[in-house]
Amino acid sequence: MNKKELRDIIRQRKRQFSSDELRELSLAVCQRLLAHPRVAAAKTILLYYSLPDEVCTHNLVDELVDMGKKVLLPAVVSDTDMEARVYRNADDLKLGAFGIAEPVGEKYADLKTIDLAIVPGMSFDNDGNRLGRGKGYYDRFLSAIPYIYKIGVCFDFQKVDHVPHSTHDIAMDEVL
Rank of each mutant, 00 (worst) to 15 (best):
E83M: 02
D92R: 13
D81R: 08
K112W: 15
L64E: 05
L73E: 11
V104M: 08
V104Q: 12
P103A: 08
M67L: 08
E106F: 06
D62N: 14
K107W: 13
D79S: 13
K107H: 15
A90S: 12
H58S: 06
A90K: 15
D91G: 04
N89G: 13
A84E: 02
E83A: 09
M82D: 03
E83D: 11
I114H: 07
D125W: 11
I100H: 09
N126E: 10
K94D: 11
E102Q: 14
E102C: 05
L60S: 06
I114Q: 08
M67W: 12
K107I: 05
F124T: 01
K112F: 13
N126S: 06
G105N: 12
V61N: 15
A97W: 13
P103W: 09
A101Q: 15
A84V: 00
P120L: 05
A97F: 11
I114E: 05
F124E: 04
D66F: 10
V65C: 05
D92C: 10
L95Y: 05
V86S: 08
E63Y: 13
D66C: 09
P103C: 03
T113C: 01
L116M: 02
D81K: 10
G121R: 12
E102V: 06
E102L: 12
D125P: 06
V119D: 04
T80F: 01
G105V: 05
E63I: 00
F98G: 01
D110K: 15
S123C: 03
G68C: 01
E102N: 13
K69L: 01
M122G: 00
D81S: 04
R85E: 08
T113F: 04
Y108T: 05
A75C: 12
